[in-house]
Design a protein around this nucleic acid. Sequence first.
DNA 1: GCCAACGTTGGC
DNA 2: GCCAACGTTGGC
Length: 160
Amino acid sequence: MAYWLMKSEPDVYGIDHLAAEPDGVEHWDGIRNYQVRNLFRDQFQPGDLAFFYHSNTKVPGIVGVMEVVSGAYPDHTAFDPDEKYYDPKSDPDNPRWLMVDVRYVRHLDRLISLAELKADPALADMRLVQRGNRLSVMPVTEAQWQHILEMEKQDDPSNR
DNA sequence: GCCAACGTTGGC
DNA sequence: GCCAACGTTGGC
């Protein structure tokens, strides 16, 4: 099984929205990036775990855990002209964009901020903290995953 | 195939 | 709101 980090803007769709869904399940739609599309298609498996990351907000960071509960399947929002992420080049007979279903697992006990993640030498190899990174879905190694869960148990060093 | 223009992401 | 970074588009 694999680990992931998935970004969303809390003002648009945050972890509280996911937690409020029936059974905590929703599809992760609107991905219009080929690298992420390929990750969905080739690597996402039911049972994988993902961090929910809040981006483009006052204190960006990791806020919770989700479980992947489906494989990749066509993102129907690409077919609808009324949708924000409508893509006329995605043909229902040959869909260009895919999505997966995720299920809310839990909130972290505290937000682990991007600043804190960046300051931790153990996470220097994370895509998230590297310069110019723009992927909204990215892999997390098992070591990084476990390290972040350990961080959750500590106080934010900047608050000490 | 090159690359300039443009659009988007997302931290700050 | 600004802007750096980078992906995509499309003319040639």
